[in-house]
Amino acid sequence: VRQEELAAARAALHDLMTGKRVATVQKDGRRVEFTATSVSDLKKYIAELEVQTGM
């Protein structure tokens, strides 16, 4: 499950970095929206997932 969450989070980051205004991911069973202003929060979430998956 964590691998899927990590892939979704990375895709969301890619979307935001390429101009999409809002990206949505499932985080702990709930839907979370990230915007360009919350990229740093999304990067932290990705880092947490990488630690949890041993990457």
Rank of each mutant, 00 (worst) to 15 (best):
1 V>S: 13
34 F>H: 02
14 H>P: 00
39 V>R: 03
18 T>K: 11
19 G>I: 02
18 T>E: 12
20 K>F: 04
27 K>C: 10
52 Q>T: 10
21 R>D: 15
18 T>W: 07
17 M>Q: 11
50 E>Q: 06
42 L>K: 00
32 V>Q: 05
15 D>I: 07
10 R>A: 05
50 E>M: 08
32 V>D: 02
19 G>N: 05
11 A>C: 10
48 E>H: 11
27 K>W: 05
3 Q>I: 14
16 L>I: 10
49 L>V: 03
5 E>Q: 06
39 V>T: 06
20 K>G: 10
29 G>A: 03
25 V>I: 14
15 D>H: 09
8 A>V: 10
32 V>S: 03
22 V>Y: 08
39 V>E: 03
27 K>F: 09
35 T>L: 04
51 V>T: 13
5 E>Y: 04
18 T>C: 12
37 T>F: 05
19 G>F: 02
7 A>C: 11
34 F>E: 00
3 Q>D: 06
3 Q>A: 14
53 T>N: 14
44 K>E: 11
5 E>I: 10
32 V>M: 10
38 S>Y: 04
29 G>L: 02
50 E>V: 06
43 K>G: 04
21 R>L: 15
5 E>T: 07
54 G>S: 13
46 I>M: 02
33 E>T: 14
24 T>Q: 05
39 V>Q: 05
1 V>F: 14
28 D>F: 02
34 F>C: 02
30 R>F: 09
37 T>M: 05
15 D>E: 15
26 Q>R: 06
4 E>V: 11
22 V>I: 10
21 R>M: 15
31 R>P: 14
10 R>W: 11
43 K>F: 06
42 L>E: 00
51 V>Q: 13
12 A>N: 01
22 V>A: 06
2 R>D: 11
29 G>T: 03
8 A>S: 14
46 I>V: 04
43 K>A: 11
6 L>R: 02
49 L>S: 01
30 R>D: 10
9 A>Q: 01
29 G>Y: 03
52 Q>S: 12
42 L>Q: 00
48 E>Q: 13
15 D>P: 00
53 T>R: 07
27 K>T: 06
47 A>W: 12
28 D>Q: 05
33 E>W: 08
46 I>C: 01
11 A>F: 06
51 V>H: 07
22 V>R: 07
46 I>T: 00
44 K>Q: 13
10 R>V: 12
40 S>N: 12
54 G>D: 09
21 R>G: 15
42 L>F: 01
36 A>D: 10
24 T>G: 07
46 I>P: 00
35 T>N: 09
13 L>I: 03
33 E>R: 08
39 V>G: 02
46 I>E: 01
38 S>R: 10
3 Q>G: 09
26 Q>S: 10
22 V>H: 06
48 E>N: 08
42 L>G: 00
5 E>L: 12
37 T>W: 05
36 A>G: 07
31 R>H: 10
46 I>N: 01
5 E>F: 08
